[in-house]
Nucleic acid binder design. Structure first.
Lengths: 140, 140
DNA sequence: TGTATAATGATAATCAATATCAATAGTGAA
DNA sequence: TTCACTATTGATATTGATTATCATTATACA
């Protein structure tokens, strides 16, 4: 193969930069497009879609699938798998991360019961976040 | 209000019947449409979408959101919440149900750590189902 | 049985995502 | 550096799922 199969175009570098700058945040394609466009107005939406796909394949970003919403994307934590969960507030729709996994023993039970080798999981918890909880008011 | 706000049309009854007949199975809208059409060829796809929405509002069916796929719908278990999990095989893409919840203690930990009141959750496990696992062959 | 209007079926509109294609610009070789 | 190859881009058409529109039909109550 003579020429490289992954060229570092300025659009691609820019998009990766956008992900890097928003560490720990999720973005939809449209949000990413808006941020990228503010830095380089010529960029096209198709390029954003294509590079999101490319960065996913390179494992540089991760897809976050949440029910009833467009997919989010976030920068990968290069370390290791680092499986974390998402808590979605039903009031303000904010997404809170929870860093620990905690599902090992649950997975063991399921694996034995169903003879199903679990390799991965996606978990979303719904509820009310700390901000939206009624504060402990004094009575009346 | 003079007239009823939910009329029992034959299309609506038919669709509910389709759900009842496929107890414990999930269906996409297109699958449901195909089944309904085989019993009543005049039914339109828009009617299927409208009644899926209606039946969801009535809590007669449940939406099952799985990553990277169209939403599935299944009949509700009237009993109680009956939260069960879905195991998706990465080989054959079959969806296996797991009846128990098992997440109470995990939820308690998260609730305390994040001061987040959990009301609900959606969990998907990925892996290899029993059919797709290599059988325990004799050596070589 | 008559009537108001919810529901239907056909189809247009919308929206996210992908495909197409001519023009551009990285990249390795000379 | 320059050249040539071709991956990538941007604009736009296309696709596929879902929703909106609207004239027509049919359910349910009086």
């Amino acid at each position: 193969m003579t020429s490289s199969n992954n060229r570092n175009t300025k659009q691609r570098m820019l998009l990766l930069e956008c992900f890097n700058e928003s560490k720990g945040k999720h973005m939809t394609v449209d949000e990413l497009y808006a941020i990228a466009k503010s830095k380089y107005a010529e960029i096209g939406i198709a390029t954003v879609y294509r590079n999101v796909k490319y960065l996913l394949e390179q494992n540089l970003i991760k897809k976050v699938d949440l029910p009833n919403s467009l997919p989010y994307y976030e920068i990968s934590v290069s370390n290791e798998e680092h499986s974390h969960h998402h808590l979605i507030c039903r009031e303000c729709h904010k997404i809170v991360d929870f860093e620990d996994d905690l599902l090992e023993s649950v997975e063991n039970i399921i694996e034995k019961a169903k003879n199903f080798k679990i390799t991965d999981h996606r978990v979303v918890f719904y509820g009310i976040c700390s901000n939206c909880k009624p504060k402990k008011e004094s009575k009346k």
